[in-house]
Each structure stands twice: as C-alpha cells, then as structure tokens.
C-alpha cells in the first residue's frame, strides 16, 4: 500500500522517469511560486480525478472510458481555475494558459488510465498523492535552479534573498528550461537516483 505512495516520488517520478507533462514543466518553472502553484493545482486535480474514476471504475463501459475521464478531469480543472481566478489572481495570471491545459496533462490522464481505472479507491488516492508530490518536487527543483541562475536570487511568496552576481537571463528563457531539465535528468541518472 505505502509503495503506491512512495513509487510516484522517485521510482516512477512523472517528470524525470515517465517524462510526462513536460509542456507545463518547461513553461512555468521560471519561479518557485509558479512551481508550487502549479504543483498544488495538479495534486488537487489528480487526487479528485483518481478518486472519482476509481469509485466509478466498474460502472464506466470500456468503449467510452476516455471521454468519461476527460469530463471528470475537466470538472476539477474548472474548479481549480475559477478558484485561482477568485482568490489568487496574480498566480492565475502568471500560470496563464497552463491552468486550463491541466485537462490534457498526460500525467493525470495517464494515472486515470493506468492506475485509477484498475485499482481500489484507497490505492488510487495514495497513487495520486505520490505522483502529484513527485511532480511538484521535480518542478520545485527545476525552478530553484532556473530562478537562482536566471534572476540572481530566490523568492518564495515574497520572502527570499538575492545574490551579488549578474543574473544569466538565459535560464529563465525557454532554452534554459530545456537545458536545466536535460542536465538534471542526466545527473540524476548518473548518480543513480533514477534508472
């Protein structure tokens, strides 16, 4: 049981092992605030979609399962999107199009198809939490590097520090995302954290 939770963080880490959901990863990992916001939104959607799909897995017929998954996921994404707009407009603004795009995030659809539609509710919830946490942690690691090198400092919800060097703007540009992601992937494989 507990393995369903821990697997998602390292062994089947959605970004560094499964290489899923890379589009939002590369696009919004420019600041730690964004990474935490995106991670929280994905954890919320993933948790409730896995829960719902697992609950009704025996009711949905095989032929229409993908449309059903999408409708369920889209419902929760709409909730997230509207809540962000209402309570955290600045975060909503900086995440931009990537909030509605959570609907087609392959991590969520992938877990629905590969796990929640075949496993009981408790395991599906643990799986969602593990995968969501793995996604958020990977995002935070990438965004720490990008924010530190690209803006010369770190700031989390207004608290932070700046270092006395001239920031390398390259790292908060899209090319920097690919570079940081690639180098991290290579290093993690080299050290043996992931296989």
């Amino acid at each position: 049981m507990i393995k369903d939770f821990t697997n998602g963080i390292v062994k089947v880490n959605p970004i560094f092992v499964l290489a899923l959901g890379l589009c939002p990863t590369l696009a919004i990992s420019t600041s730690i605030d964004n990474a935490i916001g995106m991670g929280a939104a994905v954890i919320f959607v993933l948790l409730f979609s896995n829960l719902m799909i697992s609950l009704i897995r025996n009711v949905i017929s095989k032929e229409v399962r993908i449309p059903c998954f999408i409708v369920i996921i889209a419902t929760f994404v709409t909730i997230v999107s509207l809540s962000l707009q209402a309570y955290l407009p600045s975060l909503y603004e900086s995440l931009g199009i990537y909030v509605p795009l959570i609907v087609v995030n392959c991590i969520i659809l992938g877990r629905a198809e590969a796990f929640a539609s075949k496993n009981p509710v408790s395991r599906s919830v643990l799986d969602a939490l593990g995968i969501g946490l793995g996604f958020t942690l990977s995002l935070i690691i990438i965004s720490i590097i990008r924010e530190l090198l690209g803006t010369g400092g770190i700031s989390v919800f207004g608290y932070g520090f700046t270092l006395p060097f001239s920031p390398a703007t390259f790292f908060i540009m899209p090319a920097g995302a690919f570079l940081v992601m690639g180098v991290l992937l290579g290093l993690l494989k080299r050290v043996g954290v992931i296989r």
């Binding site: 001239s166 390398a168 703007t169 390259f170 790292f171 540009m173 090319a175």
Partner: peptide
C-alpha cells in the same frame, strides 16, 4: 550565443 542571451549589455 549563451553569453549573448545571458548578458546582452556586457
């Protein structure tokens, strides 16, 4: 190209 993207003024 990297330096140019990082520190265009310098």
């Amino acid at each position: 190209a990297f330096l140019m993207a990082c520190w265009p003024v310098l």
